[in-house]
């Protein structure tokens, strides 16, 4: 059995606010070999030049807030949450 970290996963990513503008998309489907949601952000940041470092973000998987080191599995919908400013 292949190690989880080496498996290619299909992930959907949703972008909001500053990340949506910097990516130029609201959502995308992608394939990745990374293991955690934080590693996925680093990979995407390297590719798209997001200005916010991961330390400023929260992550959600399938509409649940998750820790930055939460593992990813195929089919997950991931949202990176820039600093919020409601109210």
């Amino acid at each position: 059995m292949a190690k989880a970290a080496e498996m290619i996963k299909s992930i959907q990513v949703l972008y909001f606010a500053i990340l949506r503008e910097q990516r130029g998309l609201s959502r995308e489907s992608l394939a990745t070999a990374v293991g955690t949601v934080g590693e996925l952000y680093d990979e995407l940041r390297g590719k798209h030049g997001f200005t916010l470092g991961g330390e400023h973000l929260r992550a959600a998987i399938n509409d649940e807030f998750m820790p930055w080191n939460a593992p990813l599995k195929s089919g997950d919908v991931v949202t990176f949450i820039p600093p919020v400013a409601g109210g």
Binding site: P82, V84, G87
Partner: peptide, 28 residues
């Protein structure tokens, strides 16, 4: 109000009189 401002995933972009704009708390 305090918790809503701190936790709910809502973002605010300010558009300024001079034509610039900024996502609040996103330092850009």
């Amino acid at each position: 109000i305090d918790e809503a401002k701190a936790r709910v995933p809502i973002w605010k972009k300010e558009h300024y009189a001079g034509g610039s704009s900024a996502w609040i708390n996103c330092a850009r």
